[in-house]
Simulated scan of single mutants.
Amino acid sequence: METPEGLRAILADPAGAVIGLDFDGTLSPIVPDPDAARIHPRGPALLARLGERIGAVVIVTGRPAAKAVEYGSLAGVPGLVVLGHYGLERWEAGTLTAPPVHPGLARVRAELPPLISGIEGARFEDKERSVAVHTRQAAQPQAALDALRDPVAKLAAEAGLAVEPGKFVLELRPPGVDKGMALSAFLAERAARSVLFAGDDLGDLAAFAAVRASGLPGVTVFSGSAEITVEADIVVDGPDGVMDLLGSIADAIGS
């Protein structure tokens, strides 16, 4: 397969490159319990190698930024920036910055657990600045998700929140932020000359679109399953494939 233009640009000018990565399903395998997710064993060392070789490594995730750092053992990665909650939070050099918590979250924290109580296997997750409902553990995950879609959307609208769908998950979060906006702002901040973004779920599509809209030599990497149809420059087999790709980039750049 021919090397995509964006990847050639990264290898030719690593100092101008930004490598952006989702966390769950990209750096970490998807697991039934989100709190049990941990980065691929090769991840911390590979990201540290890249952090020393390219302009910037940024993780853009729906998770709280500090959780991604903890679950990824990432505190020691040189120059790493983590944009959590789709860009609402920023972790950099051990410092976390974020706006106040959206007032509508208090209502959904109170009303969402009773709403999902009748769906066996549905799980409520509190992410501090957003909340989520997971149906991965239900006997029929897709049917459970479909049953919850309308009532969850109604509650979110009443609370002034947006719904971010994913693989067997509905996340309620503040409106006006997404991974594409977060990535675009970061590319401008760093005056990037090339960009790669890797992701695995519906929430990553905005970041893929941001790569295409940036006008930069860019490459999109899809690490998800066939359940989601995505146009991407490179398709890899989950976090194992992401690690192989990142390793090949680090090796090609050299010391």
Rank of each mutant, 00 (worst) to 15 (best):
E2R: 14
E2K: 05
E5H: 03
L7R: 01
A12L: 07
A12G: 00
D13R: 07
P14V: 06
G16S: 13
G16T: 02
A17G: 07
A17N: 01
V18C: 05
V18F: 04
V18M: 00
I19F: 03
D24L: 00
G25E: 08
T26L: 12
L27H: 02
L27W: 05
I30V: 13
I30H: 04
I30C: 01
V31R: 06
D33W: 03
D33R: 13
D35H: 15
D35N: 13
A37F: 04
A37H: 02
R38F: 11
R38I: 12
I39W: 02
H40Q: 02
P41T: 10
P44V: 12
P44M: 12
P44D: 09
A45S: 15
A48H: 09
A48P: 03
A48W: 10
E52S: 12
R53C: 01
G55I: 07
V58I: 12
V58R: 01
I59F: 05
V60Y: 02
V69K: 09
L74F: 14
A75L: 08
G76Y: 03
V77H: 00
V77G: 04
V77L: 07
L80M: 01
L80I: 13
V82S: 14
L83K: 05
L83W: 04
Y86T: 01
G87Y: 00
L88H: 01
G94A: 14
T95E: 15
L96S: 11
A98Q: 14
P100A: 14
R109E: 13
L112N: 10
L115S: 11
E120C: 04
R123N: 11
F124C: 05
F124S: 07
E125I: 07
K127L: 04
E128M: 08
E128K: 10
S130V: 00
A132R: 06
T135A: 01
R136Y: 11
Q137W: 11
Q140A: 15
P141F: 10
A143I: 06
A143N: 13
A144C: 13
A144E: 10
A147H: 08
R149K: 04
D150Q: 10
P151N: 03
K154F: 12
A159I: 11
V163M: 12
V163Q: 07
G166W: 08
V169N: 10
V169D: 06
L170K: 11
P175T: 00
G176D: 05
K179N: 03
M181P: 00
A185K: 06
L187S: 01
A192E: 07
F197A: 03
A198N: 05
D204K: 04
L205R: 15
A206Q: 09
A207D: 06
A209T: 14
R212F: 05
P217K: 12
G218N: 11
F222P: 11
S225A: 11
S225K: 14
A226V: 15
E227I: 10
A232K: 04
I234P: 00
V236I: 08
G238M: 08
D240G: 04
D240C: 03
D240E: 15
M243L: 13
M243Q: 13
S248V: 05
S248W: 13
I249W: 02
D251G: 11
A252C: 08
A252W: 10
